[in-house]
């Protein structure tokens, strides 16, 4: 396979990966962040202790995290259909990717929020700040570098998950490597695809690290 033959395939696959990872990252933050706040806040020594709620949330999150992504992807097909009206394609892949990443990110959010010193939260309480203000003006800003670092890990995980999206016709770089490299013995294309994946992951990580460092004033 010549470079001019590979190039359009690579561009298309990279685009698909970007679309899948981009949208699922957005939705993961949208759902994972509040879920993480609830997990941390509902803890026994959290901001709004609610042990029962926390147990239920914790269980749901753990179930989500213990399912291998490939199994989860098949298992949530009815949900995917209900939301997107289809079960195959790049858009359809965003649903299982999001469902797979939300519990993962929520745990990272929980950890990042826990890192915020108890004394800082209490100082805010002593100044008469309410819970909403403490979450939005103390916990989240203080944890921001950790939240960004967690998001970076999540994006990298999503890139790797998205490689399995070929199973439901999502396309992307992983799918390209499997279809051409493995099934059609196009070793060169496979190596190039893998190289592109490595570069993409490296870029995501470097960018994430830089942003986290930029935000940290510790």
């Amino acid at each position: 396979m010549t470079w001019s033959e590979m190039s359009p395939l690579l561009w298309e696959a990279t685009g698909q990966t970007a679309v899948m990872v981009g949208w699922s990252t957005l939705f993961t933050v949208l759902f994972g962040l509040p879920l993480g706040v609830c997990l941390a806040g509902a803890d026994r020594d959290g901001l709004f202790p609610a042990p029962a709620v926390r147990r239920v949330l914790g269980l749901v999150v753990n179930i989500g995290r213990s399912l291998p992504f490939i199994v989860l992807m098949i298992a949530v097909i009815p949900v995917t259909r209900a939301i997107t009206g289809t079960t195959i394609g790049t858009a359809a892949a965003v649903v299982p990717l999001t469902i797979g990443a939300v519990p993962f990110y929520a745990r990272l959010v929980e950890t990042a929020l826990r890192e915020v010193g108890r004394d800082v939260v209490q100082a805010a309480e002593a100044m008469g700040a309410g819970r909403v203000r403490i979450v939005t003006r103390v916990l989240l800003p203080e944890a921001l570098p950790g939240l960004v670092a967690g998001l970076t890990v999540t994006v990298v995980t999503l890139i790797s998950y998205s490689a399995m999206a070929g199973v439901i016709g999502g396309g992307g770089l992983g799918d390209l490597a499997v279809r051409y490299g493995y099934q059609r013995f196009e070793t060169t294309l496979m190596i190039v695809t893998v190289a592109v994946l490595v570069v993409v992951v490296q870029l995501a990580q470097t960018l994430g690290d830089a942003v986290a460092r930029r935000l940290s004033h510790r």
């Binding site: 010193g117 209490q122 008469g128 203080e142």
Partner: peptide, 27 residues
Amino acid sequence: ARQRIGMIHQHFALLSSRTVAGNVAFP
């Protein structure tokens, strides 16, 4: 009522994400 009671802490308990001015502005 707590807004009218100032408190200082052994380990300062400042917000690391805010500047000096931002910390003083919080209350």
